[in-house]
């Protein structure tokens, strides 16, 4: 494996290898060994052409714990805001000797373009592209689900997971659908028809418009952020109606199975898709998702960068 662009590039064994490696990374970070020498001398560039708190800081923390050198590079304050093209940016990074580029971009497919081009030779890691995919988020979600809902190893066979809300604009949902079903879980999308993408019937999922009937059967429920910044149309009548039908509030949470968990990739719109008391409840693993994110990203960086350079398309 040289790049991480999409969950669809991963086999089930590779996905489980990443999750297993993340367990050991978590153990190393929890213990006294916070800093590991593994990626000493490697340069990793965080190229974030779109805003991000969690993902950028999480990748940065992961890279630093493995002793890599990190260069942060955002749209604001760089020549990207002057209109420099992706190609010229990539050529610059190549000239500076970047071993890996972690890219977030508002255009779906930007990481694939970067990886397939001859502009740079390093690894490309997709940290979210448009409405396409966000593979590291899906991996940390699967890691969190596996930790809470299984005995801790293997796949997610037999688990029922609900993904609720703005599926249409959500790259997190696309990556999660691919990964969770790859790992054997049963995924149900719960959303108003206007917020489901075209062609969703062909996805390996069930679809429901009735949150209350599905919620008590779920082992984990993943609330999605309503992405108002990507909404150019009117997708639901108003926020109050949306949260009445598809928001997770205290009354709904009480119908959930014992031991089931509430997840959210963040950032949350408190009061819209999730109420504050649910987000801060004991069932919520939203803050834990962030710390798991560092371990999972350490595993991704280790598996992509620590070993001998492989041929393009070579496997882990």
């Amino acid at each position: 494996m040289r790049h991480l662009l999409s969950i669809s590039d991963l086999s089930k064994d590779e996905a489980i290898l990443i999750l297993d490696t993340a367990i050991e990374m978590a153990r190393a970070s929890d213990g006294p060994m916070k800093k590991l020498p593994t990626l000493r001398g490697r340069t990793i560039v965080n190229l974030f052409a779109e805003d991000s708190t969690r993902t950028r800081i999480s990748f940065e923390a992961a890279a630093k714990r493995l002793s890599a050198d990190v260069i942060n590079f955002g749209a604001k304050g760089s020549s990207l805001s002057k209109g420099e093209s992706l190609k010229d940016t990539a050529l610059t990074l190549q000239a500076m000797g970047a071993d890996a580029v972690i890219i977030r971009h508002s255009a779906s497919g930007a990481p694939v373009r970067l990886a397939d081009s001859a502009w740079m030779t390093g690894s490309v890691i997709n940290a979210g592209d448009g409405t396409h995919e966000h593979p590291s988020q899906a991996l940390l979600d699967a890691f969190t689900i596996r930790k809470h809902c299984t005995k801790g190893g293997g796949d997610l066979a037999g688990l029922r997971i609900g993904i609720v809300g703005d599926v249409l604009h959500s790259r997190v949902a696309r990556s999660n659908v691919l990964l969770l079903s790859l790992l054997g879980a049963h995924v149900t999308l719960i959303a108003p028809p206007t917020l489901l993408p075209f062609g969703v019937e062909s996805w390996p999922v069930d679809i429901s418009y009735d949150f209350d009937s599905v919620l008590p059967t779920l082992d984990a429920v993943m609330m999605l952020r309503v992405q108002q910044e990507r909404m150019s149309d009117l997708f639901f009548p108003n926020a109050r109606e949306y949260s009445r039908y598809f928001g997770l509030n205290r009354d709904r949470m009480l119908t959930m199975k014992s031991n089931s968990i509430v997840m959210h990739p963040g950032p949350m719109n408190r009061g819209l898709e999730i109420t504050a008391d649910v987000a801060d409840s004991a069932r919520s693993v939203i803050v834990e998702q962030v710390s798991n994110g560092v371990s999972v990203r350490m595993a991704i960086l280790y598996l992509l960068l620590a070993g001998a350079p492989t041929e393009i398309g070579g496997n882990v």
Partner: peptide
């Protein structure tokens, strides 16, 4: 010798 071979799976460290 990490750079000379494909990455190995990690094993537990239990102190």
């Amino acid at each position: 010798d990490l750079r000379t071979r494909p990455p190995k799976a990690l094993m537990p460290t239990l102190i």
